[in-house]
Design a protein around this nucleic acid. Structure first.
Lengths: 146, 146
DNA sequence: TTATTAATTAATAATTGTTATCCAATAATA
DNA sequence: TATTATTGGATAACAATTATTAATTAATAA
């Protein structure tokens, strides 16, 4: 998909969602679309500031949250707000509620045998891998229906 | 493993590592050992304060970092310091350098067919899953040898 | 078009999470 | 016991995020 069609899709998507396509939103989307570095809000802010000198960092935050809520962009992990410690040091996995950030251990040996793509091992030292099963947990689902 | 043997192991482990087993460290370890909620440093602080009224939150942070460095505890994700956005919304995975927090996309359909344990689907709404391949990247490995 | 209302943005303050600093206290070792 | 290294506590500094509020802009109806 070309950058232009991605932008067109974005615009259509916004219209469908009832989101106005403001210059700020467009700029933020453009800043992200061909960026494979998984930038922080701050990074996007810096990238955009030259062309949009009056944009506020808070706008970047809010816009990205809006985009995420509507599936226009994604976050690499929902557990980015604070460190969470685990007494288990053996390889295992986690269920993560994207609403309340509850974390539950998943200890299942069958998940420890996935085939690691070759290219990951090129140059890097693999320490292990961990699977995040992103869910809306039962408690949060109940709350949602209210 | 009983709590007591876990504590014994901890004490031995510290001795081997040349870490003194202080009351604070013991308290922090104990607070974590049977806690499956994946607590934040703040949570541990609150849990301990009654018995250790003089302990500082900074000590909790420092101690947990020390523990993590020596493999006594683990962190649920290394990407806990800031949000990272991704223009890709389709299911995919990531290589994460635990030193520099660089993130690289892993798009490999064979990783999208893992068998999700049944119990995860009980009550929860599964949105998807994402694998973090934790590595020390080539750049950081080079830096380390200095 | 203009008036009205709703949505969005900017500026900034406040809050939260984390780290650094510095000194005191404690532990390890000579 | 004396000396040195490690650890901890208090607090300041810093970084990331969120909340607040007012101004601006966009959408909609008259």
């Amino acid at each position: 998909m070309t950058t232009q069609t991605a932008i067109d899709n974005f615009v259509n998507r916004c219209r469908t969602l009832g989101l106005s396509v403001t210059p700020q939103r467009l700029a933020i989307f453009k800043a992200l679309i061909d960026d494979h570095s998984h930038p922080r809000p701050e990074d996007i802010y810096k990238k955009i500031k030259a062309e949009h000198p009056t944009i506020s960092l808070a706008t970047i935050y809010k816009t990205l949250e809006t985009f995420e809520k509507h599936g226009i962009v994604s976050v690499v992990t929902h557990l980015h707000n604070t460190v969470r410690y685990d007494p288990i040091t053996e390889p295992h996995h986690h269920v993560v509620c994207v609403k309340c950030n509850k974390i539950i251990d998943v200890i299942d040996p069958s998940l420890n045998t996935i085939k690691v793509p070759e290219h990951i091992l090129q140059g890097n030292e693999l320490l292990g891998y961990s699977i995040h099963f992103n869910v809306i947990c039962s408690e949060c689902r109940l709350k949602e229906t209210n």
